[in-house]
Amino acid sequence: MTKFEINDCHKKTIKEICESFGNKRSELINILHKTQGHFGYLPEPVQLEIALNLNMPLAKIYGVVSFYSFFTMTPKGKFPVSVCMGTACYVRGAEKIVEALEKELKIKVGGVTQDGKFSLDCLRCIGACGLAPVIMIGEEVHGRLEPQMIKDIIKKYE
């Protein structure tokens, strides 16, 4: 993976986002949401740029980024795969689905495939307990899964 190089265009975008929230520190979480929405993730140079704009320590920004599971410092794949690990899915075999996905994609949870196509994560309850166990690929939900179904589902995206 190549390191994120920040350029003037990026800096301008970040400045605009911070300004749209009045450069207020109390709006940090909203600023991070918006920035992540733009870049897809929050690498260190981006956090530093936010810190400069809001005139607050980088450590504080990093503290917030690392605290919340929604924020990520690694880029996601083109098709982010998330396995629901809510209790309903867990008791209906979500762990076996994770194993099947790890095997199929040859990555561990939290990883990205080498071609950058898929990333694999676990998330908490998406509220589709009636379809448990479920996974989300991008915005699409696949439910009532069995481990042997994984292969065909992944194929559809390749």
Partner: peptide
């Protein structure tokens, strides 16, 4: 609205 970011 204020948005949470995933922390139980």
């Amino acid at each position: 609205l204020r948005y949470g970011a995933g922390a139980f």
